[in-house]
Structure formats: structure tokens, C-alpha cells
């Protein structure tokens, strides 16, 4: 990374841009809301288990949205649930990020044609940062989605606010 792998020989003073420091702090400890809807939730649980560890990236599941940074929408969002998803998103404090996992929350998935109760993509109610395709996505794909989110956060700027 360039910040910590240098020896502190004299003075223990590190010089960096504040933006870099904030971004590095934010991307290394993204705490997620434990929000699993359907089949993709099982793959998310498998990613948090010991085979494909999520914790080594700093991601811990938190029970409440008021204490978390990222919400992973994993599974089909129905019309009945969409109102509650919007309420959960509004309860999260800034800065917050959204990962949409699986085809059902990207675009409606296999239920796009005749699903009278399925919301065709969660981006109709909340803004999404990263889309992870798959049905369900493998744990490696979800980890890549997380790395892309970290890439996006690394390039953020506190002067120019993003959408």
C-alpha cells in the first residue's frame, strides 16, 4: 500500500494525504448489515465461513443497519420487501455503499417475465455501487465484487462528493 510497509526510523511521522488516509480506513473495515433474502444469502454465509473467509478483508456482520457501512442485497427483492429495503437503506449513516449480489437483485433474474410480485432490480429503489452477476455467484465472485468496491472507495475524494 505504501503507507505501512516503510520502516519508521526516526520520529514516527507519516506524511500522507488526508483523502488517502480516510479512504484506506474506510475500505479496510467495511461492516455489513446481516441481510440475506434468498439463495444468495447461503452463498454469502459460505463466504463468511472458514473456507472463503470474509473476515480477513475486515468485513464483519452487524445486526443493525445503524452500525454498518455496506449492505449486500443478496436474493430476490419482492414488492412487499422493497419498501422495507428502502427504509433500511435510509437508516444507515453516511458514507454507505450497496453491493447487489446475484441476478435477482441486479435485474429481476429468472423471474423477469412473469413475476408479478418481483421487483426487477433493486436499483429501482436504492442506488447501487457494485453489481455481482451469477445465480448464485460463487464466493470468489463475491470477493471480487468486494475488491471492486474497495477500488472504488480508494479513488473517492472528500472534496468532490459522489452521488
Amino acid at each position: 500500500m505504501g503507507l505501512l510497509d516503510q520502516e519508521f526510523t526516526e520520529g514516527n511521522i507519516v506524511i500522507a494525504k488526508t483523502e488517502d488516509l480516510f479512504n484506506w480506513a474506510r475500505l479496510s473495515s467495511l461492516w455489513q448489515v446481516g441481510f440475506g433474502l434468498a439463495c444468495c444469502a447461503i452463498e454469502m454465509m459460505a463466504t463468511s465461513a472458514s473456507h472463503y473467509d470474509f473476515d480477513r478483508f475486515g468485513v464483519i456482520p452487524r445486526p443493525s443497519p445503524r452500525q454498518s457501512d455496506v449492505i449486500i442485497i443478496s436474493g430476490t427483492v419482492t414488492l412487499k420487501m422493497a419498501i422495507r429495503v428502502k427504509r433500511l437503506y435510509e437508516q444507515m449513516p453516511d458514507p454507505k455503499y450497496v453491493i447487489s449480489m446475484g441476478s435477482c437483485s441486479n435485474c429481476g433474474g429468472p423471474y423477469w417475465e412473469h413475476g408479478y410480485h418481483v421487483l426487477k432490480g433493486v436499483d429501482r429503489v436504492i442506488p447501487v455501487d457494485v453489481y455481482v452477476p451469477g445465480c448464485p455467484p460463487r464466493p470468489e465472485a463475491l470477493l471480487e465484487g468486494l475488491l471492486k468496491l474497495q477500488e472504488k472507495i480508494r479513488n473517492e475524494s472528500i472534496v468532490k462528493k459522489s452521488a
Binding site: 430476490t76 419482492t78 412487499k80 429468472p110 417475465e113
Partner: peptide, 24 residues
């Protein structure tokens, strides 16, 4: 909260096409 209209899809697809929907 997770009603995904399986029975309506089953009436619109052919018999082998219903199998991936039963998985889910």
C-alpha cells in the same frame, strides 16, 4: 416477503423448463 410467483411461471414454461424454478 419472498413470494416469487413460482406457480405462474410453471404455467408459462414447458415441463423441462420448470426444473430450474423448482430448485430455487
Amino acid at each position: 416477503y419472498l413470494h416469487r410467483c413460482f406457480e405462474k411461471h410453471a404455467e408459462a414454461m414447458s415441463y423441462p423448463q420448470v426444473i430450474p424454478y423448482t430448485d430455487r
